[in-house]
């Protein structure tokens, strides 16, 4: 392993730790797990890119590809969830209900795409 790979490997580990801390901060302070997951995945992508430095083996390549795929799937899932929460189905956050808990729960059980 070259010096550059050692440095990037250490940095990747630190960035994963930073991603976990950032995600926890978002969950604790903002209380939005989807946003926290997005933040964590962003940092994991940065770490994965650092692990690709040099001539990585197939396991590292596979891990990075899986992270990227997971990121796409999670992003698509969040977009679909936003669509189901909005009134007009345009996916804008502005369509989120302004009312309180009962209507929110009703929309959770009967999202827009089922109406």
């Amino acid at each position: 392993m070259t010096t550059l790979q050692e440095v990037t490997s250490t940095a990747a580990t630190l960035i994963v730790a930073a991603g976990v801390v950032s995600g926890l901060v978002v969950v604790v302070v903002i209380r939005r797990p989807p946003l926290a997951l997005g933040v964590l995945l962003d940092m994991l992508v940065a770490a994965g890119l650092l692990r690709l430095v040099g001539t990585p083996g197939w396991p590292v390549l596979a891990t990075t590809a899986v992270i990227l795929l997971l990121r796409r799937v999670v992003s698509a899932g969040f977009r679909a969830a936003r669509h189901s929460w909005s009134d007009d189905g345009d996916g804008a956050d502005g369509g989120a209900p302004a009312q309180g808990w009962p209507l929110s729960m009703a929309r959770l059980v009967h999202p827009a795409w089922r109406r």
């Binding site: 950032s22 901060v25 770490a47």
Partner: peptide, 14 residues
């Protein structure tokens, strides 16, 4: 970029 983002995430969160 990652270090900068981490610091700003913490700042924005707190």
């Amino acid at each position: 970029g990652a270090v900068r983002a981490f610091l700003r995430f913490i700042w924005a969160g707190l």
